[in-house]
Design a protein around this nucleic acid. Structure first.
Length: 221
DNA sequence: GGCCAGGACACCA
DNA sequence: TGGTGTCATGGC
């Protein structure tokens, strides 16, 4: 009996190829980007990241020392800039208190403990937490997002009311514990859904159409 | 002009 | 515990 999660991964990977995620130069940039991308188009996040770089704000020290107002002004294009400025600050302050401002020290902590700690930081929810762990720290945790729930419920592999932790467990238990696999899989899900599987299904031409309940039922297009 | 985008949190019943 | 409102910009 083939593993449906692996066969879907294989199909996506064969079709799209490696996505080379996360699009960032440093682990800190991944952490900040993970907060800035909350409910926001990535294009807007790129503008905010560029502003941070231009303002020499993309280091742990400078983020810690910058005023909330200056930080908010720099990340304005990413939307929710007042909230996100506080969240970035909260993360950096927590990093200083717990790990002396060192991401290396932070990621040296065991995955389970670090995940629990990160989830206690203001503004770090489950998706942001797992994104930081996987894409900045190369830790084997699966990132679930709105696309994941949408796509795999349409594929009939999860129920529509499945919550974050349940979806994550399905992937963690159904796949080899491999950070590179989790990295590629989440990136492929996001890429695929941007092309074919937004809130209004666009199943025509989709490589997963035959597997997708909505596509088979003709309830889309 | 409306919809959507790689969420999280506060508040309330 | 679950539902709802709030936060905000920019592309299409």
């Amino acid at each position: 009996m083939p593993n449906p999660l692996l066969s879907i991964f294989d199909a996506l990977y064969a079709y799209y190829g490696p996505r080379n995620w996360w699009p960032a130069e440093t682990p800190l940039e991944v952490c900040v980007g993970a907060i800035l991308t909350q409910n926001t188009n990535w294009i807007n996040v790129e503008k905010a990241i560029a502003n941070l770089k231009q303002g020499d704000l993309l280091s742990v020290n400078s983020l810690n020392e910058a005023s909330l107002e200056r930080l908010a002004d720099a990340i304005r294009p990413s939307g929710y800039y007042n909230i996100k400025a506080r969240r970035v600050k909260a993360f950096v302050e927590w990093l200083y208190v717990g790990y002396g401002g060192s991401l290396e020290n932070m990621f040296a902590t065991g995955l389970y403990q670090l995940r629990e700690e990160l989830l206690g930081v203001h503004g770090i929810g489950r998706e942001t937490c797992d994104s930081i762990l996987l894409y900045a720290g190369n830790q084997p945790t699966f990132v679930v997002d709105a696309y994941t729930g949408r796509l795999f419920s349409r594929l009939g592999l999860i129920s529509g009311d499945c919550d974050y932790e349940n979806i994550r467990r399905i992937f963690m238990e159904g796949l080899p514990r491999d950070a590179q696999l989790f990295n590629e899989y989440h990136a492929l899900i996001v890429h695929h859904c941007k092309v074919f599987c937004r809130k209004r299904p666009l199943c025509s031409g989709c490589l997963l159409r035959e597997r997708c309940k909505e596509g088979r039922d003709g309830s889309s297009n």
